[in-house]
Structures are given as C-alpha cells and as structure tokens.
Amino acid sequence: MSANPVSRARLFGSAAIVITTLAALIAAVLSIGPSGLVWAGIIGAVALGYAALSFVLHLSYPDAAEAAWDEQNTVAHRDSLIFGFWAVLWVFLVFLALSLTGRMDPAMAFYWLGPVLGAVPPAHYVVSVLRGRAE
C-alpha cells in the first residue's frame, strides 16, 4: 500500500466507485434494494465525494500529488480511459442490439450506459494497481 495520500485516496476512491456500481448492478438484476434513481444518487455521491477529497489532498500535499501523477501513473490512467472508451462503445452496441430486438427498454439501456462509463475506467485502474503497474 502506498504511503502517498493522493495515491491512496485515488485507489480507495476508484474502488468505492466500482463497488457501488457493482452493488447497484447486482441489486437491479435481483430486483432488490432502492430504485435505480436512488442508486444513481448513491454512485454520484461517492464519485463527487472522492473528487472533493482528491481536490483537497492535491492542495494540501502538492509534492505527493506530483509523485502520484508521475509518468507511470499518468500512462496507467490514460490506459484506463482508453479501455473505458472501448468498453462503453461495445456495451452501447450490445444495448443497441438488445433495444432494437425488443429485449431491452431503450430508457433502461441509456440509464446503464452511465455506470459503465463511470465505473470501467476506475475498475481498470484498480486492476493496474493490483498488478503492480500503478500506485
């Protein structure tokens, strides 16, 4: 585990977004828990909370922030955004096919694109950290 507060917040923040989104997905599949709108609010609150914490940490620890966004971590972050782009594209195509064949409500498809867009890049980044490719 990194001693860098910015890196640590980034890892926990990314993991929190992924876990919350997975919980929302599982709850939706099992039709349990709060409504989709409530889950959207929870995911959004977690993401905004992480963004606020990250902002404060960047201001409080500028040297740590510089090290946390060094060359390797910037590359890992860019790779996660690229992976997220392709994931959303493929999920969009799958949802489009399901919607056109009447197997999925278009409004529901549109709703679930948001969590995919928000959670896949952090998931990729967390995996990079776990594989020792980022901090």
């Binding site: 990194s2 090290a67 060094d70 060359e71 390797q72 971590n73 980022a134 901090e135």
Partner: peptide, 8 residues
Amino acid sequence: GVSRKTIN
C-alpha cells in the same frame, strides 16, 4: 519526484 512504484 516520482512514486516508489515507478522506480520499482
């Protein structure tokens, strides 16, 4: 000014 992981 980089992370320890980068050196590693």
